[in-house]
């Protein structure tokens, strides 16, 4: 197992007290697996990535029962030591592409700086200036054609989608063991999306890497995933292999995320309204007691005032008192 985290809990420091952001979060990723974490905006996905990587200061309090990365037990290390161990093996693609690039340096300089010496896998006589050649190859792989102009440019001159492709290229070029991607393909056209997803697929298959894909939309990339975990208000409400979660969702939140995906393969009525849960996701200071989806859930009842227990299904689990699609599940058993 590549990454094993048990019972992660995150608290943010506010003026007077600590606000509980995330509770009882478990994450287990096997080698060569693509695990997906799906949640609406504001559900704490980026905070979880920061907590795993140790990128926080005194404003966040993170506790976990167990943290294992590649047979190394990192539970009792300090944050700085954990950061040091993880930074050489994990690459992160952040959500804000332009903010992840240094605004003062040209792109070429930044890309060459991100190539470590372990990325060199060629004949020995090609070693001089290998970074210059490697950078060109990487940009071609993500589908950027006029590399010469772009390598000389500064980030503010490039469009957002181009910056996204560049940081994906930078992350993949380091050949990491674990790749964490936070909405990498938002805002791209379908052509670019397919290109990037093919890259991720080949990274997992050929270079034997592992991926944690964090997103807020189930649509574009879900067939690539192996496991899907649905995150709502900092708690995992449903988890399981892709076929099970998508074809037979149990939790109402999963159902609503699937309903939000636009239909393409069937004839749809023009100007049809899409199905949404009413209301807004709650803020962390006002999380409902018990099941976090309580006030918005169409099937909620009085029992939902207490935290639902974990109900295990064939390869995953969910937390709901009134789950959907139980008959389908029984049939498949």
């Amino acid at each position: 197992m590549l990454l094993d985290i048990r019972n992660l809990s995150i608290q943010l420091r506010s003026e007077t007290s600590y606000i509980q952001v995330c509770k009882n979060f478990d994450l287990m990723i096997n080698d060569g697996e693509i695990c997906s974490l799906v949640g609406s905006s504001g559900s704490g996905k980026s905070l979880i990535i920061n907590a795993i990587m140790g990128m926080y200061g005194h404003d966040m309090k993170v506790t976990m029962d167990y943290f294992k990365f590649r047979d190394m037990d990192l539970t009792n290390l300090s944050v700085a030591e954990r950061r040091k161990i993880l930074s050489s093996e994990v690459a992160i693609i952040f959500q804000e592409a332009r903010a992840s690039l240094d605004p003062e340096l040209p792109i070429g300089v930044q890309m060459r700086a991100s190539l470590g010496s372990h990325c060199f896998d060629d004949k020995w006589y090609r070693w001089p200036f290998w970074r210059f050649r490697a950078v060109n190859n990487i940009l071609h792989k993500v589908g950027i054609k006029n590399t010469k102009q772009i390598l000389r440019a500064l980030p503010y001159q490039l469009s957002e989608v181009l910056c996204q492709k560049i940081i994906i290229a930078m992350a993949l070029s380091r050949k990491p063991k674990l790749l964490i991607a936070d909405s990498p393909i938002s805002g791209m056209t379908s052509t670019s999306q397919v290109q990037i997803l093919k890259l991720f697929h080949s990274y997992v298959e050929n270079s034997k890497g592992t991926m944690l894909y964090v997103t807020n939309d189930l649509g574009p990339a879900s067939n690539l995933m192996d496991t899907i975990k649905m995150l709502y208000c900092g708690q995992i409400v449903e988890s399981g292999p892709k076929e099970q979660v998508i074809n037979c969702p149990h939790h109402p939140f999963t159902q609503s995320m699937i309903n939000a995906i636009p239909e393409f393969n069937r004839q749809v009525k023009l100007k049809m309204k899409l199905d949404v849960l009413k209301g807004d996701p709650p803020e962390f200071t006002q999380t409902p007691i018990g099941c976090p989806l309580g006030p918005r859930c169409p099937h909620a009842d009085r029992e939902c005032n207490t935290m639902p227990p974990i109900v295990k299904t064939k390869n995953g689990f969910f937390r709901c008192y009134y789950p959907l699609n139980m008959e389908k599940d029984n049939e498949s058993k």
Binding site: T189, S190, T191, L218, L224, N247, N265
Partner: peptide
Amino acid sequence: RLIQDYNNEYRIRP
């Protein structure tokens, strides 16, 4: 091409 790429293998098909 746009429509072809939209129907790619990675898109969810519930």
